[in-house]
Simulated scan of single mutants.
Amino acid sequence: MNLLRKILFPFAILYGFITSIRNFLFDKGILKSTSFDIPVIAVGNLSVGGTGKTPQIEYLIRLLSDQYRIATLSRGYKRKSEGFVLADATSNAEILGDEPFQFYQKFPNIQVAVDANRTNGIQQLLSQKNKPEVILLDDAYQHRKVKAGFYILLTSFDDLYADDYMLPTGNLRESRSGANRASIVVVTKCPKNLSEEKREQIRLKLKLSCSQQSFFTFIDYDDMVYGKEEKIAVNELKSESKLLIAGIAKPTPFFDYLKNETDECLTFPDHHHFSDADLDAIKNKANGRKIITTEKDYVRLKDSKLVSQLYYLPIKSTFINHQQNFDATVLEYVKTNSAT
């Protein structure tokens, strides 16, 4: 923890007090939460920064979309539109935000919507002629105005909420007690070989209740990178000199997976909108080499002047074990709360 964050500790206490009062008012029904008569699953975290929400939402889409009509609802962080927007053929990353547009591109059989007001967003989705049967709320753990039926809380292996502090001293949006709302806690970005002993230590540290289940996942990288017209095996690409770029919260694992000693890496802020100057700088830096980026960045760059040399590396969330238990728990919630 740096010195400035330590100095700001009194403000962290104040922020924690304010968020605790807010949660207390929602818990007691003094502030209103709206419930809906279809399954609503909220995925989020207690902290700011990347905990792997996008691959977790994609996992749920794959799990549920064969049996149910699915909609995702996000706020559309850094989008240039306002209000409720339902994705269609005219949509792009600027209208939807990068992650919702990624969902729309990858899963054409689902509805993808954005609205900062999640209550209005759900109401708008349910007013559609072909309304969804299940709604997945992306990054909505603190959005207490909607009372989801099922909460999935994510926390990164190397940045557990149990070890963190409130903003601005730490990265927590609300106190650790907010984890009590979770139906399931998923520890993300684990080492693939994480031992059962270490997993048990983490469970004890998280202090989960007997009704809460915990699971452990790791980021699984594709063995191919994909461009507009071709794909290349990662094993072939690793020996080639290339430029790696990322505008995500925690890019180090992405770089480490692909880079060799001749590669160069460029880092941009999370959800970065690439300007013409950025594109020129990237192209000059690449100097004719292939440019490899993340899937989230690719949706913002695929129509740019970089497209002829641009490729992306997909990722997915993979369970270390007990995947069937996770699937069964989610499916049982959806089945029990679906209209008959």
Rank of each mutant, 00 (worst) to 15 (best):
L194C: 03
E58W: 05
K78C: 11
E196Q: 14
I61N: 02
V40I: 15
F9R: 13
I184C: 09
K129A: 15
Y59A: 02
N92E: 01
D276T: 13
I245P: 03
S304M: 01
P191S: 06
A182V: 02
A148I: 12
K305P: 12
M224D: 10
Y257T: 08
L243F: 06
N171Y: 12
L237W: 11
F218N: 09
E99H: 05
E295M: 07
P191D: 08
K296R: 09
K106S: 15
F254L: 02
Q323K: 13
D303P: 09
L63F: 04
Y104V: 00
L8M: 10
S304V: 05
T293P: 11
D138A: 02
D158Y: 08
T155E: 06
G50Y: 01
N284A: 10
K6V: 10
G149P: 05
N235Q: 13
I320D: 05
F26L: 10
L301G: 11
D138V: 02
D139G: 07
F101N: 06
N180C: 10
I291W: 09
L306A: 06
K231P: 09
R173G: 01
I122A: 00
Y151D: 10
L167G: 02
V225T: 01
A281E: 13
F24E: 11
H322D: 15
Q111L: 08
N45E: 03
T329K: 14
C190Y: 03
D159M: 14
Y333P: 05
Q67L: 12
Q324L: 13
C265V: 14
Q128E: 11
D222W: 01
V307S: 14
N193W: 09
L167N: 03
S127I: 07
E197R: 12
R300Y: 03
D115T: 14
Q123H: 15
P10T: 02
V48P: 07
R289I: 02
S338K: 04
T294L: 05
S338I: 07
F26Q: 09
F150H: 01
L126Q: 03
R22G: 12
M1C: 08
V186W: 04
D276A: 14
K231Y: 11
L243G: 04
R203V: 13
R69T: 05
K145L: 09
I122W: 03
V307I: 15
I110G: 04
